[in-house]
Amino acid sequence: MVHDVIISGFGGQGVLSMGELLAYTAMHQGKNVTWLPAYGPEQRGGTSYCTVVISDEPVASPISSEPEAIIVLNRPSLERFESQVRAGGFIVYNSSLIDVSPTRKDVRVVAVPANAIADEIGATTVANMVMLGAFLEVLPVVSRDDVMKSLAQTISARHHNLLPLDEQALKRGAEVAQKVGKSS
């Protein structure tokens, strides 16, 4: 089984680190993974994105022409990647910052007010974790618990006091996706 996802947003929204966390967690579950960032001028200021492929077999192409899912944190990202999602795939988008709705009817769409939720939690920086929580609810390639274990291993000890906020963010994101799941 191969899962490929593009994660995209403004530089600074934590899209690269979100992808890295996802890849790292999947690797620890014994999966083969690739994490491919857009690099160079694209990482300065404008839209930043990465492609994560998770597979039981060795990963062939780390580039995805028709990703199974996109996680988009800003409007330019939605506009760029919406058309690429494969039919039957997923669009998880940040409705706090994206004031339009995806028009695709052949994919499952999850609107996540990630910044609003992150502000409620009290840390704008965990908006990306809210998005990840929602994504993992609709496409559970790894569990939230495994993500938290990876996070504890990868971030420096001085940031460990933030872990409860990250955990809360993942959970709140998942709850949003669950509601969408029930309504659809």
Partner: peptide, 10 residues
């Protein structure tokens, strides 16, 4: 190339 250099794999 940049893909092999910038990409992460296990």
């Amino acid at each position: 190339d940049g893909m092999l250099g910038q990409m992460m794999e296990p």
